[in-house]
């Protein structure tokens, strides 16, 4: 069953096409990565899929609801973590979640559970102003999960966070997926996308230029070879497509010359550069 179905979705601002005829589906329970440069159309796409922005053309169904005509039904079924830390900073974490619970008509008993889920229960009554970036990010996730959404949209959830907090957030995302929640993730971090996502779409200049599993993308665009470093310091590349490659590797192993042996498949970053002609962080 598809959690998200997008068909020919476009959005134009004045005469500029921010999103240009994109089509894709996301399966229920999948972690779907949406990668692109700044201004590639990621946030505009999320805004259209979450009912914040009306598409210029095309259709999209999220959690079975049309994003244009069924917004009332759609919004309780999705959770959104914006790229901005859009919390009420003069309020405590508990007050932020109480307000959100009232908007969603959620039982306030759920608040402690959500705070506990992200490890903020002991700081629940502190003003958000006093929170670190990582804590704010976790609170955003708690807020987006408060009403038990089917699909969660995470826009750059680990940007600007230290590696340990980033790792915690990634674990949380994996937990959500295990619980059956569909995750739509945008990120600048290729390793993060590689580690988390079941499938990845590359978006460039408003168009989806590649969509597949991370492995397939790397296989399709990378070199099928082994990188061998010998004890004498010499480096060898052994193409795996050659008929005699098996024999070469066997020889090196039996002669005891090998210091290290790695597959030389492309990284997602290299695939991205190959497809779009630019680095993701440019």
């Amino acid at each position: 069953m598809n959690a998200i179905e997008v068909e020919g979705l476009s959005r134009t601002f004045n005469s500029r096409r921010a999103v240009d005829d994109i089509s894709f589906t996301v399966e229920a329970g999948e972690i779907f990565g949406f990668l692109g440069h700044n201004g590639a159309g990621k946030t505009t796409s999320i805004r259209m899929l979450t009912g914040q922005l009306r598409p210029t053309s095309g259709h999209a169904r999220v959690a079975g609801c049309d994003v244009i005509t069924e917004q009332r039904r759609l919004k309780p079924l999705i959770g959104v973590v914006s790229e901005h830390q859009n919390l009420y900073e003069r309020m405590s974490a508990r007050e932020n979640l109480t307000f959100a619970a009232r908007l969603y008509g959620t039982n306030t008993n759920r608040i402690d559970e959500a705070l506990d889920q992200v490890g903020l229960l002991d700081r629940a009554d502190d003003n958000v102003q006093q929170y670190s970036n990582g804590m704010k990010q976790r609170l955003l996730i708690a807020r987006s999960l408060l009403h038990h959404p089917q699909i969660i949209f995470l826009d750059e959830p680990t940007r600007g966070l230290d590696p340990i907090v980033g790792r915690d957030i990634r674990r949380l995302v994996q937990d959500l997926s295990r619980e059956g929640i569909t995750v739509f993730l945008t990120t600048h971090y290729m390793e993060e996308a590689d580690q988390l996502c079941n499938r990845i779409a590359f978006i460039s200049a408003g168009k989806i230029v590649a969509l597949d599993t991370p492995d397939n993308l790397k296989m399709a665009h990378g070199q099928k070879s082994l990188q061998v470093r010998l004890k004498d310091g010499q480096r060898l590349m052994i193409p795996l497509d050659d008929q005699d490659s098996g024999e070469k590797i066997k020889q090196l192993v039996t002669s005891g010359q090998i210091r290290t042996l790695h597959s030389a498949e492309a990284t997602l970053e290299e695939v991205f550069i190959q497809i779009t002609g630019r680095k993701l962080t440019e």
């Binding site: 999705i78 959104v80 914006s82 901005h84 859009n86 969603y104 807020r143």
Partner: peptide, 14 residues
């Protein structure tokens, strides 16, 4: 300014 309007617009509030 604080982008909390984005959150409100993704909530069931009209």
């Amino acid at each position: 300014e604080k982008r909390t309007l984005d959150f409100l617009l993704t909530s069931p509030a009209s």
